[in-house]
Amino acid sequence: MNTSTNTLILDFEKTIFEIETKIESLKYLAQDENVDISQEVTRLQHKLEKQMRASYSNLSPWQKSQVARHPSRPHCLDYVHALIEDFTPLSGDRCFADDEAMVGGIGRFQGVSVVVLGQEKGHDIESRVRYNFGMAKPEGYRKAQRLMDMANKFNMPVIAFVDTSGAFPGVEAEARGQAEAIASSIEKCLQINVPIISVVIGEGGSGGAIAIATANRVLMLEHSIYSVISPEGCASILWRSADKVKEATEALKLTAQDLRRLGVIDEIIAEPVGGAHRNPAQTIERVGECIAKHLKELMAQSRDEIKKRRTEKFLRMGRHFAESK
């Protein structure tokens, strides 16, 4: 169990952190003195496991939002490097610039040639600035469109890792048509006839997320969130108070479990006990397995069917309650 990367301690994780610290210091002590600590460590590890199960099986929507945004959570490029062989990043929108917040490229997923898209948030100050905190600009969404066209041309499925607080709000982004870039990216998702699988790995923030998540299959990690507006934004607009962020988070129904119930996503991928940030390798492996399963199903469909079913699915969004009754 990797505790050293957990630099951020969430408020409900204090007990967990205390036990983790005890285990670490015991191990450290044992290096110098010849004491047998194995029994105590086993006892503490059981306790830790129990505590983590208890905390993490019952996270509130606000706590989930914190886990979803945890800086040590595996990010887009962690998945890409672990799951995609021969990943070859491709750059630029051929109009204006390359947007590093939007990862794009080609590679092989379990031997199948694919196009990969996703927002990268970065893992330290330097990389966060470089990736603009995972907030893509119009050129990022235009790069995504270009690569979706390429996927269509060469009959390659698209795999997208969604992790963004939203599209970048700025004067330049508006001047270059952020709205148009997102709208056209959604439209492109609907126009191509190769499978699209989108995985919300952390934060699915509004239009910036759905621009690459208008997919045949939308998968979500257990503690990830996907919402029309950030809890903070919602609290300040509807409650006119930043203090009401917990209420807003509850009301928005933004957890993977809520979205599954609402029929918006197709599958929830279980995270390791204690959240993805405690065991990135296992998380990534599970995500890979789930993508493989859905990809296999989708690749059995004809290209016409792929497109038709995706369009039909989104045309029903919001009507499906009436239909299920």
């Binding site: 759905i210 208008t214 928005l252 989104f314 969004m317």
Partner: peptide
């Protein structure tokens, strides 16, 4: 913009309405 009171379902209308106009365009 989107109707916040309908949460994720309002976000889905972005894809839904895009699918609708795309149908006409195609």
């Amino acid at each position: 913009g989107a109707r916040m009171q309908e949460g994720i379902l309002s976000l889905m209308q972005m894809a839904r309405t895009t699918a609708a106009v795309n149908m006409v365009k195609e």
